[in-house]
Structures are given as structure tokens and as C-alpha cells.
């Protein structure tokens, strides 16, 4: 469904993407994980036609994004990171303008908008101006808007950034529902639990390069199943164990505090890059 070959992007002297290669099959929910500035948004912007690539190739549902730009655009829906609803227009009008931009006939457009407003549980808000909606509602409308033209691929760029935990979970449920309807989803996030909960497969992006690409389970299994975070002398290290029993044999040093927990994607990212997804690692890593 999404195929990327040697994708590079330069912004003047900055090498933002360094030869990205990816294949996302139909129906998959693919998470693209990395810290700020890793190149996640740049990849999405290139794939959706907002930014021009420097070199390489990419196809969406078989359409080359450069050679068949308009056909490629028809295949995808985009929910960008920043809210880009028309604040002066109502919820319905925002969706309606989108449908018109994708050349949908009037009857089909009305039907689809009605269906989507029910889908996101906002039928009663259709005549509310976008500016009067809460942050979570705006996100839901943006997701609905991206689905008006029934795209084959949905790009979600940090869809839950800035939302509280309850609303975030509601958005996750909506994303899962969209995937169950057969849409391929390409999601960028730096929320570890978001990728773990949603993704069928995860790629780690660091400084414009993909450093790992696998299922969340396999990425985490490389380290073991359990981790102990030890804090001693103001330094935090993490030790990994295959089993809980093995972790139980851990004996702390004097003046050391420690916490036992399950290994997560953050650990996998840290072990590959030496960085946290949300910033630099606070201490050195260890592996048992």
C-alpha cells in the first residue's frame, strides 16, 4: 500500500531524511516512532504532497507520488499535527469543503458526512463553528474530515498530541475502528504507549534514518521481558531480564533504589539509539 525507496530530504544544509526505505502492506497500522526532529513529519509531508522530496521514490496504492501526484493524493487522508480546521466554518462545512476538494458528488458527500458524524458521535454538533469545539472534538472532526473521501491510506501525524489521557484513549479507539474497516494507517507519535497499544508494526526513526522496523513485541523481546530501573548516585541505569524470575534474583547495591517493570518500546528505542523517544537518555544503559 505504501512503498518508499531511498527517500531523502534536504532543507538547505540540513539532511532531514537519509535514504528511508519502507513497505507498509494494506490494512496495517504502522507507527513511525522517533524524537522531535527525527524526520517523522517530513516523511508524512512528502507522502501527502505538502513537501517536495529531494530524491528517492514513493508509491501510495501503486501511484508514484511525484509522477502521478493527483492520483496519489486521492489515495490518502491526512490528519496533520496542528489543528487546521477552518475555525469560522461549522463542523459540517469543514467536512463539506473537504468532500468538494476531492470532487465528491453532492449526494454521496452528504451521505458520507452524515455517516462520519455519527461515527465520531458528533451528529449533534454539525452546525457548531469549529472554534467552539474542545481540543478532543477538533481532533475527532479532523479525523472524520480526512475520511470523507474514503481514503485507502490514512496519515495521522501525532494525532493525540496535547490531549488529556481520557480523550487520547477515545481517539485510539476511533483509530482502531478505522483500521478494522480496512484502512491502512500510518501513524507518527512520540507517545510510547500509543505505538504499543495501536501498532501492528513500528519503525524507529533517528536523525533521518530508520534504525529498526518490526512488530512492537519483537522489538521489545530483543531486550527481554522485564526491566529494573536502578537509581544510584543520581544516575539511572536499566537492567533487562528475560523472565520475572530472573529479575527476582537481582540484588541491589547499597543506597540504590530500584523499580521493576515490563520492558517497553522506549527501552527498545533507547538500546538502539542511546536516546529516549521523548529526549536524551538520562543515564547509561545496561543489558543483562
Amino acid at each position: 500500500m505504501i512503498k518508499i525507496r531511498n527517500l531523502t530530504k534536504y532543507y538547505k544544509n540540513i539532511h532531514a531524511l537519509k535514504g528511508i526505505c519502507l513497505h507498509v502492506p494494506e490494512g496495517e497500522l504502522f507507527a513511525y516512532l522517533g524524537p522531535n526532529g527525527a524526520g517523522k513529519t517530513t516523511t508524512i509531508r512528502i507522502l501527502t504532497g505538502l513537501t517536495q522530496l529531494s530524491s528517492g521514490d514513493a508509491w501510495l496504492n501503486g501511484f508514484h507520488i511525484h509522477q502521478h501526484t493527483l492520483d496519489a493524493k486521492r489515495q490518502c487522508g491526512l490528519v496533520p499535527q496542528s489543528v487546521n480546521l477552518d475555525q469560522e466554518l461549522t463542523v459540517y462545512e469543514n467536512l463539506d469543503v473537504h468532500g468538494r476538494l476531492f470532487h465528491m458528488p453532492s449526494e454521496k458527500r452528504k451521505e458520507k458526512i452524515h455517516e462520519l458524524l455519527t461515527y465520531i458521535d458528533m451528529e449533534d454538533r454539525k452546525d457548531t463553528p469549529a472554534r467552539q469545539l474542545s481540543g478532543g472534538m477538533k481532533r475527532r472532526v479532523m479525523i472524520a474530515r480526512s475520511l470523507v473521501h474514503s481514503p485507502k491510506v490514512l496519515f495521522l501525524d501525532e494525532p493525540t498530541v496535547g490531549l488529556d489521557a481520557g480523550i487520547r484513549r477515545r481517539i485510539w479507539a476511533l483509530i482502531k475502528k478505522i483500521q478494522q474497516n480496512g484502512t491502512t494507517i500510518f501513524l507518527t507519535t512520540h507517545y510510547i504507549e500509543e505505538a504499543e497499544f495501536l501498532a501492528d508494526r513500528v519503525a524507529f526513526l533517528d536523525e533521518g534514518k530508520i534504525v529498526a522496523n518490526d512488530t512492537p513485541q519483537k522489538l521489545m523481546a530483543r531486550l527481554g521481558e522485564w526491566a529494573i530501573d536502578r537509581i544510584a548516585d543520581n544516575e539511572m541505569n536499566t537492567v533487562y531480564f528475560e523472565t520475572r524470575e530472573a529479575a527476582g534474583t537481582y540484588s541491589p547495591e547499597q543506597h540504590e533504589s530500584f523499580t521493576l517493570r515490563r520492558v517497553n518500546l522506549e527501552d527498545a528505542f533507547l538500546s538502539l539509539t542511546g536516546k529516549k523517544v521523548s529526549g536524551k537518555a538520562p543515564g547509561q544503559k545496561e543489558k543483562s
Partner: peptide, 8 residues
């Protein structure tokens, strides 16, 4: 961005 991402 909404216009740029549309097939127009």
C-alpha cells in the same frame, strides 16, 4: 495544507 493535500 488542506488545499495542498487535496487532488487539485
Amino acid at each position: 495544507e488542506e488545499f495542498q493535500a487535496a487532488p487539485i
